[in-house]
Write a protein that binds this DNA or RNA. Structure first.
Length: 450
RNA sequence: GGCUGAAUGGCAGAGUGGUUAUGCAGCGGUUUGCAAAACCGUGUACAUCGGUUCAAUUCCGGUUUCAGCCUCCA
């Protein structure tokens, strides 16, 4: 049985799918007006790991990750660039797909876009109006009336009076309650808009996720995920909208991943302290970045630094080194490593513990030189989306001068045959300076990129 | 101010009421022409103050510090 920490109940719970062996999972994806940064990468990698694990133990997972392709920031950025917002979002959607693919993130089963879900959104807004959970404000915007939903605050643990007492809540005169939020926003002239019963406009941010998730997965589904910062108000509002509209429980388990930090501060677009995925991938192999993200528990903060990435690279090299020389195919064995790995993963996806098992197994592979165990190492790692490259490919990195390196190795080995250690060491030192490390083994000399 | 969640060895990061996490780095050794890789060995870590207990880093309470949310944010 799998235990998952549920943000709604603030405890680990035994996970039971609504339908046996089937899981509906919705994750809030990107707003596409810029490149993905490491924080976005973490969401993608974390839930990719979750999906891979759930599938590996036999669940059929319907994984939905949306794209927010219409909102204020997109409009603003498109205006700044003097381009149509569709062009802008198309470009960054493609960039996002490239980044996620590089990181070994499997494509979600469905990837709905807000701009293509307008009919569902309008239907839900109308439903909320019909049930008096929403009203048309003086501004013409359709707003959700939070006091009409008695459970408001159940996810974030907030009380309405505390929220209202907060000094940072903006007072919008046209809203009945400052905490009410917009479901359908009136379009200003020149802004992208869609026809609706309430005039030309566009959806508010929260409603799109309620509409798309229930459309793809049904009114009541198993798991909803996203970054910690979405817990309030985004996910709180999703619950209010969806449960008011459907009169059913919206989601059983809420999962929220921790932030990527820089110098102990949240990495975010607002703070401007972010690294984009493609910046990092210029300096580190994608698998190193993925490994790095799985070395801490998904709910913990993850502090980014070059030192940490370097350490991750060293660690991953150790695992690949263990696989080197084996002609392995993934093999499933029921032994202590398998049991420990799964015990860790079933306990709220404890990837650090699971990775520790991989290292123990790697040590065993090094000692035993068992092809079967090497295959098991590769098989268990595949559940985390790791170690699936050819070891030589990983260890050689993206070196283009492989032929030249091989030539120098041959020269050096000729010198070694003549016991000309000075020449042999000189060649080795030269290669070392170029970032190439040699290893003389029983089967000859092999090399790797440092 | 309100609500969350953290504080673990040089660094990162799990976990546990009494027994080795794991990785990186360091040190000693085996191996090697020398290295590298690998293997073996090596570290009185658990913020602080009280409480419960035969026993607490682990449970409870206070304190301090940090982070997040309360405004767009993964």
């Amino acid at each position: 049985m799998i235990r998952i920490y549920n943000s709604l109940t603030k405890q680990k719970e035994i996970f039971t799918p609504i339908e046996p062996d089937k899981i509906g999972l919705y994750v809030c994806g990107m707003t596409v007006y810029d490149y993905c940064h490491l924080g976005h990468a973490r969401v993608m990698v974390v839930f990719d790991m979750v999906v891979r694990y759930l599938r590996s133990v036999g669940f059929s997972v319907n994984y939905v990750r949306n794209i927010t392709d219409i909102d204020d920031k997109i409009i603003q950025r498109a205006n700044e660039n003097g381009e149509d917002f569709h062009e802008l979002t198309a470009r960054f959607i493609q960039a996002m797909h490239e980044d996620s693919e590089a990181l070994g993130v499997l494509a979600p089963d469905q990837e709905p876009r807000a701009s293509q879900s307008i009919a569902e959104i309008i239907a839900m807004v109308q439903n909320l109006l019909d049930k008096d959970h929403a009203y048309i404000a003086e501004s013409g915007d359709v707003c959700y009336a939070i006091e009409s939903f008695k459970d408001y605050g159940k996810l974030s643990g907030k009380r309405l009076e505390d929220l209202r007492a907060g000094e940072r809540v903006q007072i919008d005169q046209s809203k009945k309650d400052p905490l009410d939020f917009v479901l359908w926003k009136q379009a200003k002239p020149e802004e992208p808009s869609w026809e609706s019963p309430w005039g030309n406009g566009r959806p508010g941010w929260h409603i799109e996720c309620s509409a798309m998730s229930t459309h793809c997965l049904g009114n009541h589904f198993d798991i909803h995920g996203g970054g910690m910062d979405l817990q309030f108000p985004h996910h709180e509002n999703e619950i209010a909208q969806s449960e008011a509209a459907t009169d059913e429980q919206f989601v059983n388990v809420w999962m929220h991943n921790g932030f990527v930090r820089i110098n102990d501060e949240k990495m975010s677009k607002s703070l401007g302290n972010f690294f984009t995925v493609r910046e990092i991938l210029e300096r580190y192999q994608p698998e190193v970045v993925r490994y790095f993200m799985l070395t801490s528990h998904y709910r913990s903060p993850l502090n980014y630094s070059d030192q940490e990435l370097d350490a991750a690279k060293q660690a991953l090299t150790r695992l690949y080194t263990a696989l080197r020389g084996f002609n392995v195919s993934n093999s499933e064995l029921d032994n202590e490593y398998n049991q420990r790995f799964h015990a860790a993963m079933k306990d709220d996806f404890n990837t650090p513990e699971a990775i520790a098992v991989l290292f123990d197994l790697a040590k065993k592979v090094n000692k035993s030189q068992s092809t079967e165990l090497a295959g098991q190492l590769r098989q268990l790692a595949s559940i985390l989306g790791l170690l699936q490259a050819e070891p030589e490919d990983y260890l050689h990195g993206n070196t283009i001068a492989a032929a030249e390196i091989e030539k120098q190795i041959a020269e050096r080995n000729a010198a070694r045959d003549n016991r000309d250690w000075a020449t042999a060491d000189r060649i080795r030192d030269q290669l070392q300076e170029q970032g190439i490390s040699l290893e003389d083994g029983a089967q000859g000399t092999i090399w790797r990129k440092i």
